[in-house]
Design a protein around this nucleic acid. Structure first.
Length: 510
DNA sequence: GGCAGTGTTGACGGA
DNA sequence: GTCCGTCAACACTGC
């Protein structure tokens, strides 16, 4: 009897290390690789045009790679809950496979689909392949709760041994296609989704598994660079990226984290190398860290009702938020980073630190959730767990608590870009400014401003806040918020850690 | 159980 | 130019 299996692509947009796809290929003699595209999503999701382009390129590449193993990708328009019952019936489906996804909306969606599959006598197989380990396994090994520090995660991981080895790409994936496949199931263009190529920035990081593997090989080829890599020492504002830029590929699953892990081990095995948390492996473990906390924490992407998140009385200030988002704060370093983000969809990790600190506890005192939403829209690598987790880190709302360490929007960038070349590129109004004033154009004498062809207050904004003053004020506000969370018992605080810390702080309050 | 030490990536002012 | 103390946190580990 012939069997038909659907492999449902969501993330995990690759053939290599895709255990769920492999399972489908093994069990069925007609495998339908499906990606469901909800047209509603194109207009309503918080996804910028650069990330749409990345996704469509990735799907195009996936289809091409599937062709090489006698298969095709089926793009189906609709909502999963509407689409699947029809597919189950029309194709006579007996098996459904997919990669597990821990994001809350995905968990809800998947449990609904599992129920539908059950009703249609379709057997469901799901596999963990988006992270090195199954986050639930780490959590149970840690006594049923997620590790809340990196160190703790490392301790738990050391008891788990190496992550599973990546599985091979299927050598064949038999799919019975129809002659009008392209018309019915082809990958849409940006224009089909109501977007335009013209809105996109320069194509610096094309989507797709093929490009992901090429990029991985090229990075791993720089053996000395890999072995000496220390994240804090890489430059946030170099004109060429100082890190791997593999994050967009990991986000969509064009690249398997386990593939990355084992390629890294091959390089490490032959030489002395740096270690987590600063090494390249360390970066992969940070990803694992945030996935674990995210899956174990209710309301992880919100301040309220989030047990790991400090409750801080942020201000609402639409005009500050808009100025930050659009790169009009009057601080050239901040504005350059935000412009690069909007135009290109990728900025260095430390650049993210700088602008996140500026928006929240450093200068503008705006809730980290607002910044998270802006990153979610523009970043090619926008990843729910990592995005929320890093915003809490930077705003000293969770994981990191030394709120008196405030990034300077003037001094920080100078360390790695003395001449302000990055500013000259992304804030071209300032390109003719003398180096002495490039980070603080408002300090330039009027004559210098005129000569550079850019008057501050007219052609480029004055600083929206005075950093030196606001920084001190905000540190005080943070101290107050921290104090309040102690005396109130932290509101949504975890039960387990309230007893010991409670006593100490009572003594300290007065 | 209590206490001391420690942790991915700051800035500033004075010696 | 470099080094060092200040600003004054929390969660977890190890003794």
């Amino acid at each position: 009897m012939k069997t038909c299996a659907i492999h449902w692509f969501r993330k995990g947009l690759r053939l290599h290390d895709n255990p769920a796809l492999q399972a489908a290929c093994k069990v069925a003699d007609d495998v339908k690789p499906v990606f469901i595209l909800d047209p509603w999503f194109a207009n309503n999701a918080n996804v910028g045009v650069n990330r749409w382009r990345f996704l469509l390129q990735t799907l195009q590449n996936l289809d091409e790679n599937l062709k090489k193993i006698n298969s095709r990708l089926y793009i189906i328009k609709g909502k999963p809950a509407d689409v699947f019952p029809k597919l189950f019936k029309n194709w006579g489906v007996s098996h459904l496979t997919f990669e597990e996804d821990i994001e809350p909306y995905a968990l809800t969606r998947d449990s609904e689909i599992k129920k539908l599959a059950d009703e249609h006598n379709v057997k469901v197989t799901s596999c963990v392949s988006h992270t090195l380990f199954d986050p639930q396994r780490i959590i149970s090994k840690n006594g049923g709760k997620a590790p809340l520090t990196y160190q703790r995660l490392q301790t738990v991981l050391s008891s788990l041994g190496s992550p599973p080895k990546p599985v091979d790409s299927p050598s064949e994936c038999k799919t019975k296609t129809e002659s009008d496949h392209d018309k019915k199931y082809g990958v849409p263009s940006l224009e089909d989704l109501g977007k335009s190529e013209k809105e996109c920035g320069p194509l610096l990081f094309p989507g797709g598994e093929t490009e992901a593997l090429r990029r991985l090989e090229s990075m791993m080829g720089k053996k000395n660079w890999v072995c000496t890599f220390e994240k804090p020492k890489t430059a946030p504002n170099s004109l060429e990226p100082s890190t791997t830029v593999l994050s967009p590929y990991l986000k969509f699953g064009c690249l398997s984290p386990r593939m990355f892990y084992y390629k890294l081990q091959e390089v490490y095995n032959k030489a002395k190398h740096t270690s987590p948390p600063v090494s390249l492996l360390g970066q992969l473990l940070w990803r694992e860290f945030y996935y674990c906390v995210a899956v174990d924490t209710p309301n992880f992407d919100k301040m309220e009702g989030n047990p790991v998140c400090k409750q801080i009385p942020w201000d609402t200030n639409e005009s500050y938020l808009k100025a930050w988002k659009e790169g009009r704060t009057g601080y050239p370093f901040i504005d350059a980073v935000m412009t690069q983000l909007r135009q290109e969809g990728w900025i260095h990790h430390l650049a993210r630190h700088s602008v996140a600190c500026f928006l929240t506890r450093g200068d503008l005192w705006i809730n980290w959730e607002e910044g998270m939403k802006v990153f979610e829209e523009y970043l090619l690598d926008a990843d729910w767990s990592l995005n929320a987790g890093n915003w809490m880190w930077l705003s000293a709302s969770a994981f990191f608590h030394q709120y008196f360490r405030v990034y300077s929007p003037i001094e920080f960038g100078k360390k790695t870009d003395k001449d302000g070349d990055n500013i000259r590129k992304y804030v071209p109004q300032l390109s003719k400014y003398p180096t002495a004033y490039i980070y603080e154009p408002w300090k330039a004498p009027l004559k210098v401003q005129e000569k550079a062809g850019c008057i501050v207050g007219k052609d480029y904004p004055k600083p929206i806040v005075e950093h030196d003053k606001i920084r001190k004020k905000n540190i005080e506000r943070m101290a107050q918020a921290y104090n309040a969370s102690k005396t109130e018992g932290g509101g949504a605080k975890r039960k387990s850690d309230s007893s010991s810390s409670q006593k100490k702080k009572k003594a300290k309050v007065k």
